[in-house]
């Protein structure tokens, strides 16, 4: 996993609440058996005027000029500013894969859906919860100022605005550590293999039906 330490990025504002994972990456692209290449289809139904199907050449598509990601001033954005309950709906990890593949490294919103929030950390994306009134202000500042950027420092847990205001955010210690160092969860868990084995042995005695594994 790519590590996340500091980021100074152009901000793109997506002014909608309850953005769901069906909108982030529509279902037809979930048929891929690969992990990469979802970026061109991020927000596909909002981003293009024509209907997207897997395998289409993005260069032949008709971009929707009214969708914020297509505004020239937001080209190359790596920070997504969003509203409440971002990433609700399905558990599809294709959603953070698509965001990451497009170039989004951090998302700022008043709240996130649980499964999506968790999936971000597995893919080098930092989701940042900021008070709704502050998010409101960031939207206004971002829309009013071309080239609006934010500086994010995960170690210090800060977001710094162009005016020098410093916003402090919370992040779970374990998740922070893994993201800062780009650590693989499975490798860390396997360090606990003895404890897993001990648990299984005890549980096998207490609840043998959980280990029979086939039709009884």
């Amino acid at each position: 996993m790519r590590k996340f330490t500091v980021l100074d990025g152009l901000v793109v504002p997506l002014d909608r609440a309850n953005v769901d994972t069906d909108a982030i990456i529509p279902k037809q692209f979930l048929k891929s058996i690969k992990r990469a290449g979802f970026g061109p289809n991020l927000f596909d139904e909002w981003r293009y005027l024509d209907h997207g199907e897997p395998g289409m050449d993005p260069a032949t598509r008709k971009p929707n000029p009214e969708f914020v990601l297509n505004f020239p001033r937001y080209a190359g954005a790596s920070v997504l500013l969003a509203r409440d309950n971002f990433g609700c709906g399905s558990s599809r990890e294709h959603a953070p894969w698509a965001l990451e593949d497009y170039g989004i490294r951090a998302i700022i919103a008043p709240s996130f859906a649980d499964i999506f929030y968790n999936n971000c950390f597995k893919n080098g994306i930092l989701p940042i919860v900021v008070d709704a009134a502050v998010v409101d202000r960031l939207f206004r500042d971002c829309e009013a100022n071309a080239g609006y950027r934010l500086s994010i420092d995960l170690e210090r847990q800060t977001v710094t605005t162009p005016g020098g205001e410093v916003l402090v955010f919370d992040v779970d210690g374990g998740r922070k550590h893994r993201l800062l160092h780009g650590l693989d969860d499975i490798g860390l868990t396997l360090l606990q293999a003895d404890k897993i084995k001990t648990y299984e042995e005890r549980r096998r005695q207490e609840a043998p039906w959980l280990f029979s594994g086939s039709q009884q």
Binding site: R35, S90, I115, N119, K122, D185, I186, T189, I196, E200
Partner: peptide, 21 residues
């Protein structure tokens, strides 16, 4: 019972466990 992403699917296959709060 709860839903998980693909990274956690791999994690459960490999370890039969998940990190949770």
């Amino acid at each position: 019972a709860f839903g998980i992403g693909t990274s956690e699917v791999e994690h459960v296959l490999a370890t039969q466990c998940l990190w949770q709060k």
